[in-house]
Design a protein around this nucleic acid. Structure first.
Lengths: 365, 365
DNA sequence: GTGAAAGCGCTAACAA
DNA sequence: TTGTTAGCGCTTTCAC
C-alpha cells in the first residue's frame, strides 16, 4: 500500500514548471488561464492522481462545506430516514455530513456541539436533548447557524423544522372518536420533549372539544429503559428503541380498558408492544380494543392487524431542514427571526383502530 | 447572533503579550511552560471563549481525527445499530465521524470515497456496494486504511469485520430440520453480496449434509424494489428496506409450500412480509408453516407469533470494525495481511418456526 | 521557559 | 495570462 504522500498543487506546478497559483486557477476553472495551460494542468493533475485537500481549502476559505447532524438515536426509524434524507440533500448541495449521536444525553450533546465548533462546520442540524441550550447559543454566537429538527427547544430561539404532532394527535383522536370509541388512552414516552407534549395537547383538546372525559391517567407514561419480553438485553448501544417499554404498561392498560377502548401510541414501536400485551390477555386488537400508532414505520403496514398510524414526513423534514439551514448559511448575516416550520403528518387508516361505523366521509383526502 | 470571528491563539497571545507558540504549548499541556504562564493562558482562553480550530490543527498534523463511514442504508435496523456503535466507539477514541450514504449505488460510493479522500480522513469503514473497488484501492494507496463491514469484496484485499452468515444460516436450517421440517425455502434479496451468498451456502450445505432435497427454486430471490401492500410509495429516500419485497413472493410460496414447510428469510423484514402473505392465505405461521428471520430487529420479538431469528451482533461488529481500523491507522506502515473477522450470530428460538406439527390435519379457521 | 521562523496545502490580492 | 506575496490557524524545530 505504500502510504506515499498525496500530490499537491505544488507537485503539479513543479512538474509543469508553472506557479502553484496557476495550477490552482486552472483546476478551479477560473479565467485568467490560457486554454493550453489549463489543459496541461488538468492532464498532469489526472496523471498524478491529484486530489484536492479540503482541509487546506476550507481553512483559507473559512467554510468547511460540512454540516453537522446531532441526533439522539439512529435506531429510531424516523430518525434513520431523516439521516438518509439529510445526507442526500446535503450531498446534492455539495455538503458533507458529520454525524454525532447523543443517545439523549445532555453531556454527549454538549461535547458534540463543541466538536462541531472545532471543525467549523457551516451549520448544524440537531434533534436536541431537552435541558441545556448553552452550547447551542455558543455555536450560534460563533457564527454557526443551528436548525432544530423535530423537537422544539424553549430556551433556544432557533429555526425549527418539525412535524405538527398536535395535528397528528388530533387526527388520531378524532379517528378513534369517529369510530365510536369513548374511552381513549395515550401512551407516551416519559420524556420532556415537544413532540410528546404536543401530542398530549392534541389528544386532550380533541377530547375536550368533543365532550369526552379524559381523566389524568388517560395519558400513560412509559419508561424508555424497560425491555421485558425480548430476553437478552438489547445491549449497551442505542438500546431503547424497542416495543418493550410499552409492552410493560400494556398489561395494566388491558386490565383498565373496556371493550371498544382505543389506545393511541406515541410511536409505532409502542403500538407493537401494546399489540402483544393485549393479545397475550386475550384482547384482539382492532376488534376488542383499538390501537393507533405514530410514525408509520416500515413494519407497521404488515402487522396483524395492519396498524392505523400517523405517518411522519421524514424525508420532507430532512430536506426542509437542510434547505433552511443552507439559507442561513448563505445569508451571511444572521438577520431574520427564527422560522418555525411544522410539516403535516397524515393519518393512515388501516385495521387496528377498528372499522368506522360512521360512513361519513368528509372533504377530500 | 453577530457572527464575530472566533478567537485564535493569536488573540490570546496578543492579549497576554506572549508568543503564539507559548499559548499553543500551554494549552496543549506540554512542558517548557511555566505554571504561571500556563495558568494565565488557560484563563484567558476561557475568558475569550477560545475553541481550537481542528481544521488548522489537522492540516499541520496530517491527521484528521476523523473516520469515514460509508453505508448503504441507515433504515436497515442492523446498519442503524452499526452506526450508533461506530460513532460511539470512535468518539471514545477521539474520532469524529463523517457519514456517507450510498443507497447501494456504485456511483454514490465512488463519490463518497473521493470525498473522504479530500478530507483526508484517517480511515474508512465501508459497507461496500458490490462491483467496483477502484476507488477503495485509490484510497488505500493514498495511505487511508479501509475496513469492510458486513460485506466481503472479492476484488479488494482489505480487512473485513462481519458476521458469520454461513453459520447463521446453518443454525437456522438445522433448527428447522430438527423441528421436523423436510421442505425448506430460503428467501433472499436479489443482491450479489457476500451475506446473501453465504446464507445460501449455509442453507444448501446443511440440507445436503442432512440428506434433504433442495431443488434450485428452494432459494427464492426477491426484488428489493417492490412495495405492494403499503399503499403510497415509501418515497424517494432510502426506500427499500421494507417487508413489501418479500410479501410479493409470499403468495407464490404459500401456494407451493406444503404444511409444515419452513421458510428462512434473509432478514426480519422479509420474514414479516411473509407473515402477512401467509396469513392472508389462511396459513398460520408457526403452526401451518414456519418462518425464521435474520437480524433480530427490535420488532421481531413482539410479532405474533414471536419470530425465531438469527441475531446479528451489530454493536460488536461496529466496535470491532473501529478497533481494527484504528490499529491500521496507528501502525503507520501498512504491514500485515488483511484480517477477516467473522463474529458469531446467535439463533434466537421463539415461536415462528415450530417445532411444527407433521403434515396431517388441516387447520385454519 | 520563551520567542522567532517555517510550513501544512490552499486561495486571493496584487504585480508584472 | 502568469508569478509573487501573503495568510488561513496551528504546531514544530531551533535559537536565545
Amino acid at each position: 500500500m505504500t502510504a506515499r504522500r498525496r500530490p499537491t498543487l505544488r507537485d503539479i506546478a513543479a512538474s509543469l514548471d508553472v506557479s502553484v497559483n496557476t495550477v490552482s486557477r486552472a483546476l478551479a476553472d477560473k479565467d485568467a488561464v490560457s486554454p493550453e495551460t489549463r489543459e496541461r494542468v488538468k492532464e498532469e493533475a489526472e496523471r498524478l492522481g491529484y486530489v484536492p485537500n479540503s482541509l487546506a481549502r476550507s481553512l483559507v476559505l473559512r467554510n468547511a462545506m460540512t454540516l453537522g447532524l446531532v441526533i439522539t438515536n439512529p435506531s429510531n426509524p424516523f430518525y434513520a430516514r431523516l439521516i438518509s434524507a439529510i445526507e442526500e440533500r446535503g450531498r446534492e448541495r455539495g455538503y458533507s455530513l458529520m454525524l454525532m449521536v447523543t443517545e439523549d444525553s445532555a453531556d454527549n450533546e454538549r461535547r458534540a456541539a463543541e466538536e462541531l465548533m472545532r471543525w467549523g462546520v457551516d451549520g448544524v442540524l440537531a434533534i436536541p436533548v431537552q435541558h441545556g441550550a448553552e452550547h447551542w447559543h455558543r455555536l450560534r454566537k460563533s457564527g454557526t447557524p443551528v436548525v432544530l429538527l423535530n423537537r422544539h427547544l424553549p430556551e433556544l430561539d432557533a429555526d425549527v423544522v418539525g412535524v405538527d404532532y398536535y395535528a397528528g394527535a388530533r387526527a388520531a383522536t378524532e379517528h378513534a372518536l369517529d369510530g365510536g370509541a369513548r374511552e381513549l388512552y395515550l401512551v407516551e414516552e416519559d420524556l420532556d420533549i415537544s413532540p410528546v407534549s404536543e401530542r398530549i395537547r392534541g389528544f386532550r383538546e380533541t377530547l375536550a372539544a368533543r365532550g369526552v372525559a379524559a381523566p389524568d391517567d388517560a395519558v400513560v407514561r412509559v419508561d424508555p429503559g424497560a425491555a421485558p419480553v425480548a430476553g437478552p438485553a438489547p445491549g449497551p448501544v442505542s438500546g431503547p428503541f424497542d416495543p418493550g417499554a410499552a409492552y410493560a404498561v400494556g398489561a395494566g392498560l388491558a386490565r383498565r380498558a373496556g371493550r371498544g377502548a382505543v389506545v393511541l401510541a406515541g410511536n409505532d414501536y409502542h403500538a407493537l408492544g401494546l399489540y402483544r400485551a393485549f393479545s397475550e390477555r386475550g384482547l384482539r386488537v382492532g376488534t376488542d380494543i383499538g390501537v393507533v400508532g405514530h410514525g408509520d414505520h416500515p413494519f407497521s403496514a404488515y402487522l396483524d392487524p395492519a396498524l392505523t398510524t400517523v405517518r411522519l414526513p421524514a424525508p420532507d423534514v430532512g430536506r426542509a431542514g437542510v434547505d433552511r439551514l443552507l439559507e442561513r448559511v448563505q445569508s451571511a448575516a444572521d438577520d431574520a427571526d427564527p422560522i418555525r416550520t411544522l410539516l403535516a403528518p397524515e393519518l393512515v387508516v388501516r385495521a387496528s383502530a377498528g372499522p368506522l361505523p360512521h360512513p361519513s366521509r368528509r372533504g377530500g383526502r
